[in-house]
Nucleic acid binder design. Structure first.
Lengths: 334, 334
DNA sequence: ATGAAAGCGCTAACAT
DNA sequence: ATGTTAGCGCTTTCAT
């Protein structure tokens, strides 16, 4: 990489002259500016980012901590973050916590050494279960703002971007009730997460508004054979005529399992699930889905963090942004 | 963030004494070391990463350029890269090229300003179609090594990690032939990629080794309705009794479509496809899959790059590492 | 209009 | 054993 020093030497001027010329300072003579810019272009000079960061005490880099990048929703949020950050001139350093509290702490620690200006993160499962938040608070008090998305620690004062999970399943369940479904089950492999709990409550509220109805909840654990579990559940409860799936796989699997058991979907059973467009194609008929607009969530988070970074002096109050879900009706409901 | 300067002041010693003490230099007195470390711990001192990078002219950061993070395979490779890099003390800055040549060039440019020590990347689709490689060469000649994975530019001299795509489909096709399948189709939405071409050739070779057999190739375009296209293809060619799917969706969709058309899988038709374990669960019966060991690919790429970074002076020859696929036989084949 | 110098935080060669 | 100094690449204030 060429440096200002080398350019200065070759042009027989001082370093500061070169610097000013490249930054279009009024102070420098027209002719000099021309010569400097010419040589800089020739050598493809780019200001050294590290030196700039040191000088200006900001890196224009955001630390992103994701629990699991193989989760399609989280990957999509990351996509949204990257796109918005790039648009606004920021880079992102990505760390994967693997749902581990320890790794989350570590990533926060390591990047808080001057590598990034702030964080966007989704709280790890273990962190949510143990309800630890000190590491977040410590980071914030060090002057590094955090924006949390999806799974958030409610008692940490920071900006947040969340989904109206409760409302989403409440409305979806209401939709199945409107189809006159009588036995609606709830299937989830995210029971332990804050969002999973909200989704369950939305379902429960809609069901319990009817005197004669009962909850029916199938909880999938990590180690379970997802397919088998769902299939035997549907077999054991043949009266099920509706399914609300709280994660991105259960809906697809429920449709396929039902068909495998000889049911017609949606004639005998309706299914609504959280899923991306791509995944919804993995079932015949296509899954009626609750879309979370992951990219929008990501873009919002990036936008919020960068806004805060660029207005640190204002010390604005923290905000929580709620991104609405959409119910995309296709063929797995009436 | 506390700096050496502040610690030095508070301890009434010089900055270099503090620095040496913290770096366990022999020069410093035992008692001083103790005092310094104590205060550093109290203030939770961490060396400023940016200052270190500037001083040592290396960032311990890798630039990763991924064409599409919503592609499960690529996300998994990223996972592998992140894990290995973290293990070896490196951070990763992630850019998403969105399959665009322009964005790929831009990311390379921006990060080559001192932000990273080298790159790991998967060539964008547009770049492969236009066969442009100058930007890679330029980056390398600037002293920033590149490791390419999966889709590579063969005429760029750099380390590479690839999959034995040709062999994978060749053997898979042979497998179907061994089941005595007579009409084996090839379905792909990655025809334009280097890997897609290799996969097609592997299939073609196995088929054409039989005098009486012909190729049958369904090409899915981005804008197509994947489901509809596959279904009508299977309907129009009812004699198909075997499918090799070159991408991660076509296999799942082929099974579901066949069942929808009243076929029994694998009795009437066998299907083998590239897919991850999770996705293979999206079909009943589970898809017999070609696994690419994405995490291993990522880990290898990171390991290769970091090895090169730490041995720049040796100027070692470039290597190409081939990661073998595995055929996981489940229920969609006999 | 141009240049010298200080300083961002750190390390290390070189005094003392 | 401790301190002084220079320097990584850059911007910016303050001379000239």
């Amino acid at each position: 990489m060429v440096t200002l020093k080398q350019l200065a030497k070759e042009l027989n001027v001082s370093i500061s002259t070169v610097s000013k010329a490249l930054n279009n300072s009024e102070e420098i003579g027209e002719e000099t500016v021309r010569r400097v810019k010419e040589l800089a272009a020739l050598y493809n000079y780019k200001p050294n980012k590290v030196a700039l960061s040191l000088k200006q005490n900001k890196t224009k880099t955001i630390g992103v901590i994701i629990p699991n990048i193989l989760n399609h929703f989280l990957a999509k949020v990351l996509f949204g973050i990257e796109r918005e950050a790039t648009k606004l001139g920021y880079n992102i350093i990505t760390c994967i916590s693997n749902e581990s509290l320890e790794k989350e702490k570590e990533s926060l620690q390591i990047l808080a050494n001057g590598s990034v200006d702030g964080f966007i993160l989704c709280v790890a499962e273990e962190t949510q279960i143990k309800n630890e938040v000190d590491h977040f608070r410590r980071t914030i008090s060090q002057g590094l703002p955090i924006v949390m998305f999806d799974r958030v620690a409610h008692d940490v004062m920071c900006d947040k971007v969340i989904v109206d999970d409760f409302d989403a399943t409440y409305r979806a369940t209401k939709g199945l009730l409107a189809e006159n479904r009588k036995r609606i089950a709830f299937i989830s492999n995210v029971d332990k997460l804050s969002v999973g709990k909200l989704r369950e409550r939305g379902y429960a509220k809609a069901i319990l508004e009817n005197h004669d109805m009962e909850l029916l909840h199938l909880s999938i654990k990590k180690k379970d054979d997802h397919q088998k579990k769902v299939k035997s559940f549907l077999k054991k409860n043949p009266e099920i005529d509706g399914v609300i799936a709280a994660d991105s796989s259960s809906g697809i699997i429920a449709i396929n399992a039902a068909i495998n058991l000889g049911k017609k979907v949606p004639r005998d059973m309706s299914v609504i699930g959280f899923a991306s467009k791509g995944d919804s194609y993995h079932a015949f008929p296509k899954l009626t889905t609750i879309r979370q607009h992951a990219k929008v969530i990501g873009a919002n988070a990036a936008e919020m963090l960068i806004h805060r970074l660029q207005n640190m002096h204002l010390n604005e109050d923290v905000k929580t942004k709620i991104v609405k879900t959409s119910l995309i009706k296709t063929k797995s409901t009436l």
